[in-house]
Design a protein around this nucleic acid. Structure first.
Lengths: 155, 155
DNA sequence: TGTGAAAAGGCGCAAAC
DNA sequence: GTTTGCGCCTTTTCACA
């Protein structure tokens, strides 16, 4: 892997993380390069894992997923196996989009989506709170979305 | 727009939000359909906005973005224009990936990425805290990532 | 690294059934 | 929804500066 990312590569990445449908030729045009080297750069960055994959982004509202909730979880037992078991379960829940271990007050922060309050409560009551060693779960409900992007800063 | 999403469409979406490189033919094969109707379904869902767009997902670690911070913001003045001005600024910051208005304690929740503590502090001190009417900013630092996906639940 | 060209096959898209 | 087909375009490679 060839690390120090040049300005051209940055530009390519910026384009691609905004529109994954762009072909090598289209990208080449926008970065003022010819096809081949542009294609090679893209290809290399994919192999390096810098470009992880391409995905289709869906519209949550149109799918009826109008709720986003951030949940702070605290466990009552912090043995290695307890943590691992909890984390594995989390990965398996499709309604949990993100999960981080946190410094400070709570052990985990989860980002959860649901259709509505009822749907969220069902997930909370029947799934999350049923897990062993879950001591606290503080739900913070998002009322509206100001910004949501997958584009990382490239400066 | 043709609303009640059938099980085949769901399956298509599930595939596409996992791998956006799949061609209509490949999707068709996996959902046991022939090319054309599959292509038409995908095309329709794009026009309907259900499939918003395709993007390349980059690896934050390899870009040196090893920090994720969730920031709770409280404003001191909640006039319409203050809120709008703040939100516009937020949208303009590339290091802010997500921002929601929250029910409860704080006004906004931001998800911010940075290279390291120093980089984050610079953003906090020089950008966020410099904005008018920002009263409080509580930073919650993510230590490790258990799960991170853009795939929405489709059940 | 860059440029230009070229082969081959795949893909989008539409028509007819 | 199916099968068929056309033609463009994309990807991928090579020789060369």
């Amino acid at each position: 892997m060839q690390n120090p990312l040049g300005p051209i590569d940055r530009k390519i990445l910026r384009l691609l993380q905004h529109n994954g449908d762009l072909t090598a030729a289209e990208v080449a045009e926008k970065v003022e390069l010819s096809q081949s080297p542009c294609w090679r750069r893209i290809h290399r960055m994919q192999e390096d894992g810098l470009i992880e994959r391409k995905v289709a982004l869906l519209n949550p509202k149109l799918l009826g997923l109008s709720m986003t909730v951030f949940v702070n979880i605290k466990l009552s037992a912090h043995g290695r196996s307890n943590l691992e078991e909890f984390e594995q379960a989390i990965v398996g829940y499709p309604e949990v989009l993100e999960c981080y271990t946190m410094a400070g007050g709570s052990d985990y922060l989860l980002k959860v989506v649901a259709k509505d309050i009822a749907g969220y409560e069902r997930f909370l009551r029947d799934q999350l709170l049923q897990r062993p060693h879950v001591q606290e779960a503080h739900s913070n409900i998002a009322m509206s979305e100001v910004k949501r992007t997958t584009e990382l800063p490239l400066d």
